[in-house]
Design a protein around this nucleic acid. Structure first.
Length: 274
DNA sequence: GGGCATGTTAGCAC
DNA sequence: TGTGCTAACATGCC
């Protein structure tokens, strides 16, 4: 599921802002690492021992990373990246140990936080501070200022779609929101950054933040078997709509492959030459 | 069985 | 040094 709006929705859920019982304020009584080979850093013994007994004092997000602040003898941060198929859910202790559960945090009220990940790409880290982990990332896509966005874009020479997916440019945009933002801005995803006019770059910045905000307002997008909950998929203008009419101009949406990812665009609303 | 998948990264070529 | 391409990670769905 996880691009910025989906991770933001999880953060809000775990803070208790969407009505569900919060993780915020709970104490972790024990940790169970169920896929020992890779999922947790540091190694499971150290991870479980250090996290047990700590209390959740904050839940933040940068790009696609969820950051859970823990208070113990020394403060720590648990960073979680869901990659392609990870999910995080508050469940009862009884429901916690499902076939794809990779890490389970048992909590002081008898509930549990469960990290499920069918494809095993997701990772969790327990850190004194997350600065080294986050250092390569660009500013968060939701809050990056227009001037910073323009300045960073002007220092890159690549195609628009490649740039939007590059987490060192801005952090949080993935394949869906990249295509939706490019369509909203009326810019072909294959355009070279150097060819973009100043007004196009400003439009792109606004489009990125608009589609991310809409995604958050819809509690994210969900489709196929991975993630239930959000409904932004009902509002896609291009993603996954190859052959269907553009909701703006009626021309059939095209699919191509760019930066090794499926890329959807409207050939009329997003002309390549200008 | 083949193709596809909301993500990232190492290795290599230019 | 920056950019781009491929393969790899591991699994499930259609």
């Amino acid at each position: 599921m996880p691009e910025l709006p989906e991770v933001e929705t999880i953060a809000r859920t775990l803070r208790g802002e969407l009505g569900a019982p919060p993780l915020l304020g709970r104490q972790i009584s024990s940790v169970h690492v169920l896929w020992a080979r890779e999922v947790a850093h540091p190694e499971p013994d150290v991870f479980t021992q250090r996290a047990a007994g700590s209390t959740v004092t904050g839940i933040r997000r940068h790009g696609k990373y969820l950051l859970i602040e823990l208070q113990a003898a020394t403060p720590m941060v648990m960073a979680i990246h869901l990659k392609m198929s990870g999910r995080l859910d508050m469940v009862s202790a009884r429901e916690a140990f499902t076939p794809h559960a990779r890490v389970v945090w048992s909590l002081d009220d008898g509930s549990a936080l469960r990290f499920e990940d069918a494809r095993k790409f997701g990772r969790v880290w327990l850190l004194d501070r997350p600065s080294a982990l986050l250092a390569p990332l660009g500013p968060d896509a939701l809050t990056v200022e227009a001037e910073v966005f323009v300045q960073r874009l002007r220092s890159r020479r690549t195609r628009l779609k490649t740039l939007l997916l590059d987490q060192t440019f801005i952090a949080g945009v993935g394949n869906i929101y990249a295509d939706e933002a490019a369509h909203r801005a009326g810019i072909h995803p294959c355009r070279k950054t150097a060819s973009l006019t100043d007004s196009e770059v400003v439009r792109l910045h606004q489009a990125v933040q608009a589609v991310l905000c809409e995604g958050i307002a819809a509690n994210g997008a969900s489709f196929d078997w991975v993630y239930p909950g959000g409904h932004y998929q009902e509002n896609f203008w291009v993603y996954g709509r190859a052959g269907q009419p553009c909701r703006k101009c009626g021309a059939p949406i095209m699919r191509t492959v760019l930066a090794q990812r499926s890329t959807y665009y409207c050939p009329t609303c997003q002309p390549l030459d200008r």
